[in-house]
Design a protein around this nucleic acid. Structure first.
Lengths: 198, 198
DNA sequence: GGCGCCGTATACCGATCGTTCTATCTACCC
DNA sequence: GGGTAGATAGAACGATCGGTATACGGCGCC
């Protein structure tokens, strides 16, 4: 038959964990994940060794950094527009009804045990984002790409955090203006003074 | 006798909840809070109706906004310095070993039930911060205090979130430079170009 | 054909969760 | 002194937690 074969238990577990941990936090019960994935209890421990392993692997295989790259690539070649496109995308993402913040930040804050394997994945994710933006700023001829990437990450994390805690605030619009300042003059994007809000 | 009388059960519960929820998240067990506060089980439900009520009241009586006011007041009268002092203080706070991020953001992300009474306290806290900074910018003669306060809050939340997820990044230093841009020219604080990082 | 692997299903484990209950004790006010 | 309110101590509730164990079924591979 030609019906698309459904993924194996491992992929189904990762997908279910992706969905449920985002909406309910990393403290979702394994029973909820199992029934959502339609997978036997034993398969979880066979593939991931336990809930902690599943959470960590879910964060590791979450291709979030790729989405940033795709957003910038879709914005073309103009250096300014590429970075600003990230904040335009953040405005779209943070205003979606299902938006619940950054899953990495949420995992970091929720898991008080510092030995939890998820913490390493959170750090790896943020470091990768830093590399992405630092590389971008280097291509722009930014005088201090490392520091500039620090600034952009503060803006990104600030947007993601603030959008959850203060609904209706549209922090991505506020961050976009600051991002323009970081990128400095010389681009094609809105070179003038204070840009309009709307 | 002249010994200082220890606070009543209600205050002890709030203090224990303050400490334990910050280090272990809002999912700490009731038993841990009770033993830490050295309080009978019944007192918790007598005073707060349950764990949810305790968490919400703990957030409500947390005088975090006052600390922002105190930090700015201690910085004197110069409009720029008052706001920049907040980021200097954030640099100190975020580099402390016990730093575990913003308790309001953590509570918001950890409590998936949108009916939880803590969510209202989180929103109230962020709105109060917005009012504080908007009032500050108004006194500065900022052209758009509401939008400027949005920007400062993105920076503050970004610093608090990023400092937890990427240890050693010193996001407060990166945010301080952006805050200077928001405040605009005309102050006494470092009017020149790109300030030094250290 | 028999063996082993993978997945399912389900029962079960001890531990912990938030909550309710009864009982006892203490302090204060009239 | 009696009564009341507030606090303590501790047992017990049902529910859920993450994890383990047992039994069964399908499949390919030698």
């Amino acid at each position: 038959m030609t019906t698309t074969t459904r993924p194996g238990p491992r992929e189904r577990l990762l997908e279910a964990a992706r969905e449920l941990t985002y909406t309910h936090g990393v403290h979702v019960g394994v029973d909820a994940i199992l029934s959502r994935a339609d997978v036997a209890r034993r398969s979880l421990y066979q593939h991931f060794g336990g809930k902690d392993g599943l959470i960590a692997e879910m964060l590791r295989t979450q291709a979030t950094a790729d989405r940033y790259r795709e957003t910038m690539d879709a914005a073309g070649d103009d250096p300014h527009e590429r970075v600003l496109a990230v904040f335009d995308e953040l405005e779209r993402v943070t205003t979606r009804p299902a938006f619940r913040g950054c899953r990495y930040t949420a995992a970091e804050l929720a898991l008080s045990d510092l030995d939890h394997p998820a913490h390493a994945e959170v750090r790896a994710h943020k470091e990768e984002l830093h590399r992405i933006f630092a590389a971008e700023l280097t291509r722009h001829g930014h005088p201090d790409p490392e520091f500039g990437a620090d600034q952009i990450l503060v803006l990104v994390d600030g947007v993601l955090a603030h959008a959850v805690t203060r609904p209706g605030a549209h922090p991505a619009l506020a961050a976009r203006v600051m991002a323009e300042t970081i990128l400095g003059p010389g681009g094609t994007a809105k070179p003038g003074g204070t840009p309009e809000r709307g």
